[in-house]
Design a protein around this nucleic acid. Structure first.
Length: 419
RNA sequence: AGGAGCGUAGCUCAACGGCCAGAGCGCUGGGUUGUGGUCCCAGAGGCUGCGGGUUCGAUUCCCGUCGCUCCUCCCA
């Protein structure tokens, strides 16, 4: 085989595409109900945007970006996530001046340079929402509610919501300090990676999955204990609304997220059906990001979820859904002379919104029938010399085997199939 | 980045170091140009990933390489 796709970039083949379409349609339908508008930023951005937005010392920026130079030597990066791009577009087009609260969603490919494994590839797809322009805790909850609704309406069970608040930028300082103090005496027994994190961003230690680190993380100080009064009020309001809406959650005092821009509320929805990569979707507030990228101080909240992973869980939960409907009709041609009538009828009927197929390989009648059967056609018409001469033929209902005499015109066929 | 496993027909997989590398499914044709699913017969399709080594002889053993899959880390 001469050519292969680039490592970690997979073809999504017709055999599985209907699952994607089902999910995509559900997302779009849901977004209309919640009144979020689609936005499609480009896949490429100047590298600086991601470095600035996501944070230089995050793993994502540090080692997972698809970065290269264009012909004029400018550094470009394939988007590893969409929030930074959405905020950039929001600012670039002064969207905020039209309506202070913007509720946006997106759907599309993201790129991260990592070793591929189950549920993770280099080109993958995310869907997500961004609600920019309000600090209302009800908005945090709306965003979480969308996430729940989506997964639930797709038929998933075994979901749980992990929730935490990491406070505002000012709270970080105190909390960071506490963490540093806590880990200072334990530096010897945490992993090498975490010793590095201790210097650059002690919050990240809490994310470590290593056995030796987990032990210490369990009893590490919790961010919720270091919230300022405003953040604390915000968090309890979020929890109250969640209770009110019957959205059950588990407080995870050590949940932090991989990107630097998060503030206050952070959350993850996880599936018990996934193994190592159990996080289906994650998000939170990013009240400083708009300002960080050069805009006015503007609070925001959002989430992003992985399509591949979602489809993986759906498959395990309910098996395959084939969306390609049964064709309404197959028209078999018997002999060369009848071909032209078959072709004309096919064109006209298709334009009348009838889904049908014909033979393109001059196969015997028997093979054509076998094929009609294979594609599970609902009706069958055979057109041979007799039909050609008389303009009258039979339409057969494949399931029952019942046949009916009809005139071989668009109207005649249409009428026969309506019953 | 580190670790493990696997590369044989379109797909799923067989083949003790030894005869012409096989099977099922799929595909094509025929039995059967005037009505399908079943059945029967036939056929096409292979540089056994690639390169080297050991051997009288390698799909099989060894080394390298490329690719894929999975795991760890991190994330979606």
């Amino acid at each position: 085989m001469k050519y292969r796709s680039v490592r970690g970039m997979n073809d999504i083949l017709p055999a599985v595409i209907s699952q994607w379409q089902v999910v995509e349609e559900k997302i779009r339908e849901l977004m209309i109900r919640y009144r979020y508008h689609e936005i499609r930023p480009p896949l490429l951005e100047y590298t600086e945007l991601f470095k600035r937005g996501i944070g230089e010392d995050s793993d994502l920026v540090g080692k997972e970006m698809y970065t290269f130079s264009d012909k004029r030597g400018r550094s470009l990066t394939l988007r590893p996530e969409a929030t930074a791009s959405v905020v950039r577009a929001y600012l670039e087009h002064n969207i905020d001046t039209k309506e202070p609260l913007q509720k946006l969603y997106y759907l599309g490919p993201m790129f991260r340079y990592e070793k591929p494994q189950k549920g993770r590839s280099r080109q993958f797809h995310q869907y997500g929402v961004e609600a920019i322009g309000s600090l209302d805790p009800a908005l945090d909850v709306e965003v979480i509610d969308i996430a729940w609704a989506l997964l639930e309406e797709l038929g998933l069970s075994g979901l749980s919501l992990r929730l935490n608040s990491i406070g505002c930028r000012a709270d970080f300082k105190g909390y960071r300090q506490k963490l540093k103090e806590y880990f200072a005496t334990r530096l010897a027994s945490i992993c090498e990676n975490c010793r590095q994190r201790y210097q650059t961003n002690p919050l990240r230690i809490l994310d470590c999955k290593k056995e030796e680190c987990r032990l210490h993380i369990q009893s590490a100080p919790a961010s919720v204990d270091y919230l300022c009064s405003e953040c604390s009020r915000h968090f309890s309001a979020v929890r109250n609304y969640l209770n009110q809406l019957n959205l059950t959650y588990v407080i995870d005092p050590h949940l932090v997220r991989g990107l630097d821009y998060y503030t206050r509320t952070v959350f993850e929805l996880i599936s018990s059906h996934l193994g190592a990569q159990d996080s289906l979707l994650g998000g939170g507030r990013y009240d400083d990001l708009v300002e960080l990228l050069g805009g006015p101080s503007t609070p925001a909240v959002g989430f992003a979820g992985g399509m591949e992973r979602l489809i993986l869980v759906l498959k395990e939960a309910k098996g395959r859904v084939d969306r390609m409907a049964r064709p309404d009709l197959f028209i078999a041609a018997l002999g060369n002379e009848s071909r032209s009538l078959v072709i004309s009828l096919a064109q006209q009927l298709r334009r009348q919104n009838i889904s049908l197929d014909i033979d393109y390989r001059s196969r015997s009648l028997r093979k054509q029938m076998t094929y009609a059967n294979q594609i599970n056609a609902q009706h069958l018409i055979v057109i041979g010399p007799d039909e050609l001469a008389s303009g009258i033929g039979n339409i057969k209902e494949m399931d029952s085997g019942r046949e009916r005499k009809i005139s071989l015109t668009v109207e005649g066929i249409q009428a026969a199939m309506e019953k």
